[in-house]
Design a protein around this nucleic acid. Structure first.
Length: 153
DNA sequence: ATTCTGACA
DNA sequence: TGTCAGCA
């Protein structure tokens, strides 16, 4: 069993966990790297998934040499249209599929299938909390035949 | 006491 | 990234 199954942490606790400031955590959020949910008022609530994601972000910064823009770019490559099984029409009307260099959760428009959804609980966001396994997880969505024509996936 | 948003060294 | 203001 997972001990911290549904525990939510306030920003101050998370900051201490990683030895960073609350300002830095808000920065990651503003840069589109994390999507903590908001509770009473506007207070942020971090789940264990968020914690894991932040650990990956810290690793990419400290060990992999990426800056925030680089990390955002990595997230922008997630094939949300495959994960969400978007129809051809939906893809044509979605900026995340068309031209976005940003993660889908910050490039989506109101009229897309993701329009009213809470991206913090969407698999495109939540399933990649462990960003070290991005490539592994992608294999589940990317059928072999699509690599023949990568531009029309 | 803690967090929030926005602005700015 | 840090910090300061003015709230809730």
């Amino acid at each position: 069993m997972k001990i911290n199954e549904s525990i939510l942490y306030p920003i101050g606790v998370v900051a201490k966990m990683f030895g960073i400031s609350v300002a830095t955590l808000r920065l990651y959020e503003n840069e589109g790297l994390i999507l903590p949910q908001k509770s009473k008022g506007q207070h942020r609530s971090y789940t264990d998934k968020d914690i894991q994601r932040i650990a990956c972000i810290r690793d990419m910064i400290n060990e992999k040499g990426l800056n925030l823009a680089g990390i955002r770019m990595v997230f922008s490559t997630l094939p949300c249209w495959k994960i969400k099984n978007c129809s051809e029409e939906e893809r044509q009307n979605c900026p995340a599929y068309q031209d976005s260099q940003d993660p889908c959760w910050i490039s989506k428009n109101a009229d897309s299938v993701c329009g009213t959804e809470d991206c913090s609980i969407c698999p495109v966001y939540s399933e990649f909390a462990d960003c070290r396994n991005i490539k592994h997880i992608l294999k589940k969505y990317w059928n072999p035949s699509s690599i023949q024509d990568p531009l029309k996936v």
